[in-house]
Design a protein around this nucleic acid. Sequence first.
DNA 1: TTAAGTGTACCATCACAAATAGTACAGTTA
DNA 2: TAACTGTACTATTTGTGATGGTACACTTAA
Lengths: 119, 119
Amino acid sequence: MIIIDYKDTRPIYEQIVDKFKTLILHGALQPDEQMPSVRNLAMELSINPNTIQKAYAELERQGFIYTVKGRGNFVSGDGKLVEERKCECIQKILELAKEVLEIGMTKIELIREIEQLQV
Amino acid sequence: MIIIDYKDTRPIYEQIVDKFKTLILHGALQPDEQMPSVRNLAMELSINPNTIQKAYAELERQGFIYTVKGRGNFVSGDGKLVEERKCECIQKILELAKEVLEIGMTKIELIREIEQLQV
DNA sequence: TTAAGTGTACCATCACAAATAGTACAGTTA
DNA sequence: TAACTGTACTATTTGTGATGGTACACTTAA
């Protein structure tokens, strides 16, 4: 389910955060579904429980999961998440679009690229 | 010309690399124009020459500048640079676009955002 | 030829963050 | 009670960014 890429220069905990964010946003993990326990996931990935703990703390801070002491971590049911993620993405897209237009691409060309995108 | 942002979490040498890439791609630095010397720029920015050296080495690796021993570093005259950078940007844009479409945005909405972009 | 300016190549050191290792404690559930 | 959860803490290792300093080779201009 989660795969760590050791060639990736980003920290492991950050990769884990991103992976879960994607799974949650895509609905692969349903609201109130239980997350793997810190110890289990650490065993499965052969990394230290503290690294998972750090990833889960970050996911909770960002509102993707909530914690019940003694029971586990669960996926947040908050529908705002998708909307917020959309905003993030669009902002990044517009930044990159701005750059690419500044160095000579036309809006027409850029839009054509997006139109051809298969989803 | 170059400003270091100490609030930025990225390494200093990386900020310098990016700044010069932008200047070169936008034509603010012309092909074969001489770059500031390692020692001069280090003095100007009040940082260590080795940090500038690292930034210049990276710029050379990416083909943005070339080095003449004993004379200095110069902006590469290779016209492919802009084209390559465009490809990089578009690839990132398409990745983000894919994600945002997967979580419920429509192509129409996305394209409208780009159309409204002021450049 | 010499002096001053270039880039390059080291090495040692410090600072910081990521990650590991281990322990202990508190809450929940069967 | 036993076995599972999360949490908190400390110590340690590792890697990278950055600094400080030295030395060397090349180019240019006086």
